[in-house]
Each structure stands twice: as structure tokens, then as C-alpha cells.
Design a protein around this nucleic acid. Structure first.
Lengths: 243, 243
DNA sequence: TAGTGGTCTAGACCACGAC
DNA sequence: TCGTGGTCTAGACCACTAT
């Protein structure tokens, strides 16, 4: 194992070093979503630490939703469609009735130079290019969200070659470009519907909308998606759990 | 330690049983906020399990923000004013500049029978009484929030005997009634400012507001506070971190 | 120097799933 | 029956804090 104190200040516990090296396997695609990874005992032998230390690393990654452990079966790399994973990033919930995932309809896809807000949010150089996707989303045939997604061109080559943009784009990012969304930060405001919003959502101009600005981050903590959603919250609310 | 399988289906790991019994000490006030609790070794001896099992229980409680551990010093019961604890439940953040806690001004305090919404949110019997507190909150002298708080009378006797309602009410709940807020669920919507809202917030009638309905839960998971906040989000946003 | 929590190890046994 | 992850233990050593 690497020396802990080589620089004098960079001490990291062994299990954190192990965690980082295992996350690297995910980043580099050596471990693919859905794959069964080696057992604790095998990993312990391979890495050269005790089973208990491997366990602490795996438990940490499980807490980050990167792995799924199943007693008696083994440890698997988490997939974007894994159970709650779907709703992990989708917080809009019907006021009454079951939670559901909305349908989507892409209205526009274009390639342009990133504007200032996009460059700042996605940490891009001046002159960088991005994809812009506009789509509207509905729940039970009721218009719900009008949103625009911005993606760095470099991370998503040939996005315009897609035949269709599927409903669950994070699954697409993972399968087609090996981009894993690990976490996201959302900023919410109440805004007024513009004429465009009103047309897309079938509401009055000036109606109150919930605006959600999301920056989604990959496994290395780099921003890879900027998304602005404007939502009608007449029959739906944004659920936030504070623990 | 208690028998694990007495009912046949109620198996709980030892460290969970230990956690529950230690949480009980918090609930019953045997351990007070800010207090130094016994060391791992002492607890292990007292409870009759290994130090490792005690550690798992304490680590779980630390993850729930119930305890604060300090290497070399010991383990302390968390206090409502502990560092991030302040912002744990206050998610409104200035668009620019430092995060700050708003000032508050109570405009009304009354005692009434709970209405249907309040009874449902707080799980109260028909005819139960509640306190209703109305207050407006400001950040840097700018009106920000108009909110109404509902509390069950049973849990908060003599609320009207207070000389003043302080800024941080969760600290008050803890110190005066030994009610600890452990977690909360918030439901957000975009709404339109009523004439009352407009007066309280100094905005136009019909302006878009962010409405936050919060139900706050105690250590036992029972709802103890219902709060409806209506917020001007012109210079501020609600921050939600999805991991 | 003594005591605390933090890390790391090694090994035992249990519960679960597949065969 | 076997291999997996889950629990539990016991003990060693380290890093931090107070005295």
C-alpha cells in the first residue's frame, strides 16, 4: 500500500485510500454498472489489506450509492435504474397518489458556444461548445415540466447522432458515454411563467412556477450537466428530506 | 443483552439494539444536549458488549447528527446550535455572498383548536388544541419569509408565558420543553402572493413565492411542529443537495 | 503522561442465496 | 453444502487533547 505520510500533510486512512482506488476502477470503466465485483476476501488478498478494511471501503461506497450489496450473492456496481436510484434525482411527487416517473418529449436539440452561465456552471473554457436539449415532461398526460439541458460537447461526442433521446437520460449517459452521475446540487426559486412557459405547460402567462437549476456531477466531482427545469406545482410538490 | 429472536421475526443486530437503548437515554433526558457521555470502554463494560459494537452504535448516532465525536476529548450529545446544525434545517441561501441566519419578528401568537390539515400533519385527535405563531423573517433588513408555526399544546405547555420568542426556536424547544428536532420533511411549491403576503413581504400581490410546508419530527419520529413558510426568492434560493 | 476516539487486523459465527 | 455479506469480538497501534 502507498506510504501515508509522504508529503507530511496528505495523511489518509488506509480504508479511504482503498475506497479511492476502487472508485478509480469505476471511473476507468474496469468495473461496469451491474457487474458483480470480487468478494471481500478476494479483494483483501489482492489489495493486501485485511477483510475489515476492505469492508469499510465497500460500506462507504455503498453509502454513496456507488455499490449495491446483497447478502449471500455478492457486491454489485450500482446501475442508474436501480430501485430508488430513479427517484434519487427526481424529487417531484404527486400531492396525492403514487410516485411516478414522467414521460418526455424533446422539442429541440442544438449545438452552440456556451454562454457565460453555462461556462461557469460546467467549468468550461471560453469558446467551448455545448449541446442544448429542450424538452417538456408530463405526468399522466398533464404537462408538468419545461426544461433545458446543457451538456459539454467534449464529454458527449455525437449526441446528435442519437435516433431518440430516451426518458431516463442518466442511463443513456452511463451506457453510451460511460458518464456516471454520482450526485447533484439543486437551487430552487419561485418564478413567473413566460409566454414560452405558458405555451409549453398550458398555463397562464404569469402563473407561478418552481424553477430548479441543477448541476450534476460525475464520479470525480466534475460538473457534467446543467439543467434548468420550470415546473407547474398545482398537483405536485418538490420533496426535500432533512436529516 | 435482550434475546434477539423472542418473537421469531423481530431480529435486530446487537449494535442496533444498543443504538436504540442509547437513543432512549436522549429521549428520556438522561443525556442532555452538550453533555459529555461515557467513553467507549466504559459504555462497553456497562452495556456488556465489545467496544467495537459500541462504536458501531455511536457511529450510527453520529451519522444521524445526534452525537458529536471529538478525538482525544470524547463523545458529546449534539446541540441545536452545533455548527452546521443551524443550517441543517434552513436551506435558503443568498444567491451571492455568505450564508446567514435571518432575524425574526413575531406578529401573532394564539391558542385554538387544530384544523383538519394541522390534525393530519401533527397526528392529533379531534378537538386537540394548538399554538399558532405568525412571524416574518428578514435577511440584512430585507423581508424574506412570512411564516406560520403550529405546535401541539400538549407538547408545549405555557408557550404563551414566554417573554419573547427567540430567533432559533429549535434551541428553545430543546432547552425549555426537552423536545429535540431530529429530522424534517419539506414539501415545496410555487404559489402566488396573497394581499397579506404582499403586505408582510413588501412585494406585489400576485408575485411568485416559494411555499415550504415543513413537518418536523422528534427523536421518536413523532411530528411536533408544522410550519408553512412563504418566501421571496428574488435574491435567495433553496439549496437541495442530492447524493 | 494518561485517556480519548480513529484505524487496522484476525478470526469466529450467523443469515442468506444458489446449487 | 458452499460461498457470500453481516455481525461480533478482542486486541494492537496511532493521533489528538488535556494536564
Amino acid at each position: 500500500m502507498a506510504d501515508a505520510g509522504e508529503a507530511g500533510f496528505a495523511y489518509k486512512p488506509l480504508y479511504v485510500q482503498v475506497r479511492d482506488s476502487l472508485v478509480r476502477r469505476l471511473i476507468e470503466g474496469r468495473w461496469q454498472p451491474g457487474q458483480l465485483i470480487p468478494s471481500e476476501i478476494e479483494l483483501a488478498r489482492e489489495v493486501g489489506v485485511s477483510q475489515g478494511t476492505i469492508r469499510k471501503a465497500l460500506d462507504a461506497m455503498t453509502a454513496e450509492n456507488l455499490l449495491v450489496r446483497r447478502q449471500g450473492r455478492g457486491t454489485y456496481v450500482a446501475e442508474p435504474e436501480d430501485g430508488r436510484m430513479l427517484f434519487q434525482f427526481f424529487r417531484l411527487t404527486p400531492d396525492r397518489g403514487e410516485r411516478a416517473f414522467p414521460t418526455s418529449q424533446v422539442s429541440d436539440l442544438s449545438r452552440s458556444r456556451a454562454n457565460k452561465a453555462e461556462r461557469e456552471a460546467l467549468e468550461l473554457e471560453d469558446g467551448s461548445e455545448v449541446w442544448r436539449i429542450s424538452r417538456s415532461r408530463a405526468l399522466e398526460a398533464r404537462p408538468l415540466i419545461s426544461e433545458s439541458i446543457t451538456l459539454p460537447l467534449i464529454r458527449f461526442p455525437d449526441f446528435d447522432r442519437l435516433e431518440a433521446v430516451p426518458n431516463n437520460v442518466y442511463l443513456l449517459y452511463s451506457q453510451r458515454w460511460r458518464v456516471t452521475i454520482a450526485r447533484a446540487v439543486e437551487k430552487l426559486k419561485a418564478v413567473t411563467a413566460s409566454p414560452d412557459d405558458a405555451a409549453a405547460l398550458g398555463c397562464n402567462k404569469g402563473a407561478p412556477l418552481l424553477e430548479i437549476k441543477r448541476i450534476a456531477l460525475d464520479l470525480e466531482g466534475r460538473p457534467v450537466e446543467l439543467r434548468v427545469s420550470r415546473c407547474l406545482t398545482d398537483h405536485v410538490h418538490y420533496l426535500s428530506e432533512l436529516r
